[in-house]
């Protein structure tokens, strides 16, 4: 019997999707290995914590303080670590988001627990969890076993299915946290205005050097608008100053796993593929039939993006109308 604990990430009081994915994964592991699934959330007001019951969580511990609405690495680390120790939690799951990737290693060090981060699969063999994670920019995968008594896993967002929740409600226990450790404090969150981030989008439309000039990205933005997609970019166009670094997909940009990734005028260099190869469907439009992007694309058009893209926008508008 293992005691599973899921860290629930909230931003602006809303639970992140990756936390539902982690909760469902913990429930799946507990079904195979036996054990209980509890969750811990840190923040001020957090909506719908009881809905985690629908993903298999029995009880949610809400550690509350009004100074914790925004992330504080120090306070969150201390709160989660202390809670996990006192509660006797053995296997702790995080979503490998920007918060999860910051927090999970700190908790792992504090608990002296082994950590498998950015997992893309969790399988059970006998009584052991085998975590699969990409290495070398996705050119290889490793299967790892965490052998310490306490174990920490962080799951790559968008890879694990959260499934359809049941109507079950989790019990929610609120504890007020006194004088949290705010030695590292977020003083401001600067939102990129009204823009969907590639790391969170279900659909991404990315442009590369084949787009020829920064002003041509207006077409990509138009398509994004119609599709509800985020705009991405290759490093070549970010380095050229056409697009902000926040949009860069790849080894030195963001790693994304959207349902649909559309690459326009992107050659598909290995460092770009590193960031998007785990996308469920990949579409490429490129005039070079030998461009490496076609090797991983599900659908491709070998053609001039300036001829194909306007028609594509038009057709998508038709079906969305």
């Amino acid at each position: 019997m293992a005691k599973f604990l899921v860290f629930i990430e909230q931003r602006n009081g809303q639970i992140k999707k990756s936390s539902f994915e982690a909760a469902k994964s913990a429930a799946d592991l507990a079904a195979k290995l036996g054990g209980t699934v509890e969750a811990v959330a840190v923040g001020n007001e957090i909506a719908n914590l009881d809905s985690l019951g629908g993903f298999g969580v029995s009880k949610v511990y809400h550690l509350k303080n009004d100074s914790l609405a925004d992330y504080s690495p120090s306070a969150y680390t201390e709160a989660v670590t202390k809670f996990a120790s006192e509660n006797g939690s053995e296997t702790i799951l995080f979503g490998a988001t920007s918060m999860g990737k910051d927090l999970a290693p700190r908790v792992s060090a504090k608990l002296d627990a082994g950590l498998a981060i950015d997992c893309v699969a969790l399988n059970v063999e006998g009584s052991e969890i085998i975590a699969t994670r990409p290495v070398y920019a996705g050119k290889a995968l490793v299967d790892v076993k965490v052998t310490s008594a306490k174990k920490v896993y962080a799951l790559r967002p968008n890879v694990f299915a959260a499934g359809t929740p049941t109507d079950a409600k989790a019990e929610v226990a609120v504890t007020n946290l006194d004088s949290p450790n705010l030695s590292v404090k977020v003083t401001e969150v600067k939102k990129a205005e009204g823009k969907l981030d590639v790391a969170e989008a279900d659909i991404i439309v990315s442009g590369g050097r084949g787009m020829k000039a920064p002003e041509h990205f207006a077409m990509i933005e138009e398509l994004c608008q119609v599709l509800g997609a985020a705009t991405g970019a290759s490093r070549a166009v970010v380095d050229a100053g056409w697009r902000p670094h926040a949009e860069q997909v790849g080894q030195t940009g963001k790693t994304v796993s959207p349902t649909l990734y559309i690459a326009l005028g992107i050659s598909g260099a290995i460092q770009h593929l590193a960031g998007m190869r785990s996308s469920k469907y990949i579409v490429a439009i490129n005039k070079d039939k030998d461009a490496p992007i076609f090797q991983i694309a599900d659908y491709g058009i070998v053609g001039d993006v300036f001829e194909v893209l306007p028609k594509f926008i038009e057709e998508v508008k038709k079906i969305k109308a």
Binding site: L115, P134, L141, V144, A284, I296, G300
Partner: peptide, 26 residues
């Protein structure tokens, strides 16, 4: 605390479908 059991290659993606060579394929 973390032991590597195996390193493997990612499953090769099936060659995709080239739908066409101009906007008539859209």
């Amino acid at each position: 605390y973390v032991e590597v059991a195996a390193m493997k290659r990612p499953a090769a993606k099936q060659a995709g479908k080239i739908v066409g060579t101009d906007s008539s394929a859209v």
